[in-house]
Amino acid sequence: MSRLAACFEKLRASGAKALIPYVTAGDPEPSVTVPLMHAMVDAGANIIELGVPFSDPMAEGPVIQRAMERALEYDVSLDDVLEMVRSFRKTDAETPVVLMGYLNPVEVRGYENFARDAQAVGVDAVLLVDMPPEEADDLLSALYAHELDMIFLVAPTTDEARIKAITESGRGFIYYVSLKGVTGAGHLDIDGVKQQLVKIRAQTDLPVGVGFGIKDAESAASIAGVADAVVVGSALVRRVEENADSADDINRAVAGLLAEMRTAMDAG
């Protein structure tokens, strides 16, 4: 069984929901990332989403855009991100790692090369924001041949026919984007999320995670009430930014928020 499937099965058995933090690899500088990944697991994260820096992150709000710019100041590439995962895996064989980013770095590397290398370092899944299922046949064959899951997004604008196609193509979990907008936007609508989750669950048994607009313990708990996983990104990246001068402060601030979310999610 894949690490992702095992993770969700274990959570389901204990009645808990997955907490999935996102950070951008190499933000604010490369040496911060691997210790931060461990600190997040210690604070209650179940799965880690690691952002691959890209020069033109079209779906990101200003917070994650700036994180990617900080990482790119150090020329953090897909090679470097894979090395970070390899290093993380030395002491954590269990926590699933999802690479999240944009297609072009993967496209340039070649799908087969990427899938082989990602599997070798211990990546579990890939989420590429600008790669819809319609264009993904070749990539999916490469990923699935190397036992990597492809996570697709479902949005508020996705109709039922597309939800069906997306849930048939995707593996690992389905990522529901809770709002019309970019990452870090602030208008979470729980009732709207609930309605769309019903439509998704009618089509698939895959776990459903919800992201965009979750910024504190309260919003994490309310999403945990309706979804299998809570994805939190910009709220954490903002803490990285605010504490950019000290790796210890970054770990403390990020772990602090995650621990609050964990507690609130488990209490619900």
Partner: peptide, 12 residues
């Protein structure tokens, strides 16, 4: 060519 955009834009 093609349509390489975030899911939210596929409907529009």
């Amino acid at each position: 060519g093609g349509m390489f955009v975030a899911e939210t834009l596929m409907g529009p």
